[in-house]
């Protein structure tokens, strides 16, 4: 469904070494992986969102995969036993890969990652927060930054000492 004039990357450009792991293993390392590869991940998601064209983000995508591979190689070298146990537990304890059933193996894995690789597990809910990325990548042509002229403005309130005396009683206590 694509014409000859449609530029596509060649097969050599698209063939890189992929992360050859299954879902339980990926989820077992997810928290440390996300922190380790935070910058390329955010760059990639921003690129996909801004450009709206996955052909322009192929190079950043390669960085993301290379970073993930590097992380899992480190884990394989240092914490293979703990990682395998944790992934196995995630795989076999529930149908939707919950972490709730695997707190013991998770604690062992976190401890190993902290001691041998000095990788902290981020705070609970870290990945669900919105983040702002400072990037060098130029904005795509035609990109319009959103403006909100109707947004409510902050009302300047002077400090309590400068306020005039209240006319009808105390400011602190209000009769119900």
């Amino acid at each position: 469904m694509r014409t000859k004039g449609f530029n596509l990357p060649t097969e050599e450009e698209l063939t890189v070494e992929e992360i050859n792991l299954s879902t339980p293993s990926l989820r077992a390392g997810a928290f440390h992986l996300g922190k380790y590869c935070e910058t390329p991940s955010q760059e990639y998601m921003l690129c996909r969102h801004e450009e709206k064209d996955i052909r322009k983000c192929v190079d950043i995508g390669k960085d993301v995969t290379a970073c993930g591979l590097e992380f899992f190689r480190k884990v394989k070298k240092e914490c293979l036993d703990e990682f395998t146990q944790f992934a196995n537990c995630i795989d076999q304890s529930s149908v939707d890969f919950q972490f709730e059933k695997c707190r013991n193996t998770q604690a062992a894995f976190d401890k190993c990652m902290l001691e041998k690789l000095d990788m902290h597990k981020p705070q609970h809910g870290y990945y669900c927060r919105a983040k702002v990325l400072k990037t060098d990548r130029p904005k795509p042509p035609g990109y319009i930054s959103p403006e909100f002229p109707d947004a409510p403005k902050l009302i300047p309130i002077p400090p309590a000492e400068e306020l005039p005396e209240a006319k009808h009683g105390s400011r602190i206590f209000v009769w119900p």
Binding site: G34, T65, F97, H124
Partner: peptide, 16 residues
Amino acid sequence: IEMRSATIALLPFLFA
């Protein structure tokens, strides 16, 4: 939140 965090952390790799 924990389950969603793991998914969000993995999404760039899956998308790439």
